[in-house]
């Protein structure tokens, strides 16, 4: 199980996956890699990195402010 917190939607979801590439997760959530930053277990990762069962992932929106 991968826990995913989507900051811009104030929502947390659980994925029943053993492994997923970050870019695939980003696109699955309806974003493009330039629109979000992925933080895995407190560390910033690139869209090419893998996310594993048991990881906690935060999806931080790039657009903020006024």
């Amino acid at each position: 199980m991968i826990r995913v917190k989507i900051i811009s939607r104030a929502k947390e979801i659980e994925l029943k996956e053993n492994k997923i590439i970050a870019e695939k997760l980003i696109r699955k959530l309806g974003f493009s890699p330039d629109e979000v930053v992925v933080v895995r277990n407190g560390e910033v990762i690139t869209e090419d990195d893998e996310i594993y069962d048991g990881d906690f992932v935060e999806i931080i929106p790039v657009a903020s402010g006024g």
């Binding site: 900051i7 811009s8 931080i60 929106p61 657009a63 903020s64 402010g65 006024g66």
Partner: peptide, 10 residues
């Protein structure tokens, strides 16, 4: 210490 939130009027 930045808030990653968007202005409600944006």
């Amino acid at each position: 210490p930045a808030w990653h939130i968007e202005c409600p009027h944006a």
